[in-house]
Design a protein around this nucleic acid. Structure first.
Lengths: 127, 127
DNA sequence: ACTACTTTCGCAACTGAGTTGCAATAAAGA
DNA sequence: TCTTTATTGCAACTCAGTTGCGAAAGTAGT
């Protein structure tokens, strides 16, 4: 389905994603939008935006959920297969513009893959 | 540090891992060992075993933590870098004996990587 | 075996991310 | 404007994982 109605909450959330190229954790979004909407609403809108192909999500190294804008994703399937990077120092995550190859595995059907790289980002290396 | 004392609980937990080559979710372990030890104990022993290099862990597609036996891991760093597979039908996870190449990323220092493949396992394909 | 020391365990209470049900609200089309 | 239906807020809940502390059990020394 995705988003059916352009509500104020939806545009506010999209605005936040429009202001950055980084991925955003749900926790961060909920607290950033705390004055504007309920956390349940944040969760539900993120769901719908992912459903509609505007956002994609991944699980960070600590098990928390992150969302980022889609570049080449479609609602049917996410063609924009790319790794994600998470900085162990500052915690920020980002999408990487790198192609990855998914190994084929005997006797398994692979539907999707998620590669998470953990290390130090540029900002944290320079200090 | 790892495990300093060979307690009954530690050997029971290692026994469970000895009986399978699959990865085991913490949730599964806690419920399987429910009659034998407290869940806090399970969490703490798993921590110590990972610390000592006997087990390694990864985060499943739903954000839950999984553990598996180490083959070539050391306590200093896990040299046995391999992807993990999780079946979207039955939920089971396993370590894959496949080498993966970690892309290098400009202006980032990569310390570790985690590749999770999601799809259908052999058992679920055959039914 | 006994003692002393230190790690480990159980318990109970807690934290925090994510979910659910339902009544109230607000888009969008007629 | 009216009606329909998606969306929102709220409050309560679920459940994985954590914490503090007193009790129990390894381990080393004698």
């Amino acid at each position: 389905m995705g988003v059916a109605r352009k509500t104020k909450s939806v545009s506010e959330l999209l605005d936040v994603f429009g202001q950055t190229d980084n991925a955003l954790s749900v926790v961060e979004l909920v607290s950033k939008l705390d004055q504007h909407m309920n956390k349940t609403t944040v969760y539900r809108i993120l769901d719908r935006l992912e459903d509609g192909g505007q956002l994609h999500s991944f699980i960070g190294k600590d098990g928390l959920k992150w969302y980022a804008k889609c570049q080449k994703c479609s609602s049917s399937h996410h063609t924009d297969l790319h790794p994600h990077f998470q900085c162990r120092d500052c915690g920020k995550s980002e999408c990487l513009n790198v192609d990855i190859s998914i190994p084929s595995v005997a006797n398994h059907r692979i539907d999707s893959a998620e590669l998470l790289l953990v290390g130090s980002c540029q900002d944290c290396l320079n200090q």
